[in-house]
Nucleic acid binder design. Structure first.
Lengths: 199, 199
DNA sequence: TTACGCATGTAAGAGGTTACATGATTTT
DNA sequence: AAAATCATGTAACCTCTTACATGCGTAA
């Protein structure tokens, strides 16, 4: 049973924008959609093949303009219909799995020291991501093929900006809380260490 | 290959807090950790069995105080050591998959109308989640078994609050953007419909 | 000529969900 | 007496990642 197979629709959706090769798809997921969607090549190629068998997409050999030969795919009417139906369904909220928060939840076992380390690293990383995303903003108008396209891409980007900024704010708050605790309690050692010392 | 097997550590971490049955674990994931972690029973029971075989946990028959018999597990020294090592590793950022954002990214195919519908539904849902989380706050002090426990639980809860509020703010901004577009363009129909009408 | 990026794929196998199965106890 | 909740599992099955394999074109 497992999950619904969203790779199909992710691929179909991209091909609805325009013809692309498997490799193109991977690049696009990585470069422009990484803050809300990920796909691996080991998933993309088989999916493309399957969609082809089902008549959802068409394949063309593209040997255009000096480039080496590659296979580009475009969506068929059937594919577009299937995509459309899926798009209208209310989006499923995914099951979340946030390793950072899980580790913090186990804080007494982790130790305040390490918690601060994890948080600092995370904050730095999030700031870097934020910078990249802010750099996207002007790019969108150039890449989008219509005003409508641009509108929706701006909306998805805005989501990323809001959430990342919230995460950064949270990091600061959390580190502040830990600092306060440290000062008032002097409890910086993980439970495991204290356990040892007690014996 | 696939992923690292975090279920092990999630279970181990919970048992480091105190003894619990498989069923208890499931409830706790669901009720108090659902905004950052999910586990299914079909995963929990086999993991518990495996951890038992490896000597990471111990099993006790608990027929206590009028309740029916159940199997509760507690962590062993080996288990705690394994957990500790994992906790110190920098948390891996998960691959994200946000169906809502994916569908919005395909906005021209989805249509402004449906986009607004999806967003509204999502916003309502997020507001409900926010309310539940805000209700948690006072509960934490009661459930936590130490000040340190309480501190860390407050930190994970704070993350949820920040992110959910950010999502709600984004919903409003996004709907505002869509409304503006609607007024200036009058383009409320999905591309599929316009395509039909054009022929 | 060596190495890197482009490009396409396959295979193995872990990880995870859902559905099925079962039975006791408590509530309505 | 029926229904809901507690409680524990197993089986089927899909999804997805990682690793492996291959070869072309171009830049250093």
């Amino acid at each position: 049973m497992a999950r619904s197979n969203r790779t199909r629709y992710a691929v179909l959706g991209m091909l609805a924008i325009g013809k692309r090769s498997g490799y193109d798809l991977k690049k696009e997921f990585e470069r422009r959609m990484s803050h809300f969607w990920a796909e691996s090549l080991g998933q993309i190629y088989p999916t493309l093949k399957q969609l082809l068998d089902e008549g959802m997409v068409r394949a063309h050999r593209d040997s255009g303009t000096g480039r080496r030969v590659r296979t580009v795919y475009s969506i068929t009417a059937r594919g577009r219909k299937e995509l459309s139906a899926w798009l209208q369904d209310p989006p499923q909220t995914e099951q979340v799995r946030n390793e950072m928060l899980l580790k913090l939840y186990f804080g007494p076992e982790l130790g305040v020291e390490s918690a601060v380390t994890h948080l600092s690293r995370f904050e730095t990383e999030q700031r870097r991501v934020l910078e990249v995303m802010e750099g996207f903003q002007p790019e969108i108008a150039e890449v989008a093929e219509s005003g409508e396209q641009e509108l929706f891409w701006k909306i998805t980007l805005a989501s990323g900006l809001h959430v990342i900024r919230a995460r950064i704010a949270w990091c600061q708050e959390a580190r502040c809380m830990l600092e306060k605790w440290r000062q008032s309690e002097g409890q910086t050692k993980p439970r495991a260490l204290r356990r040892l010392e007690a014996s």
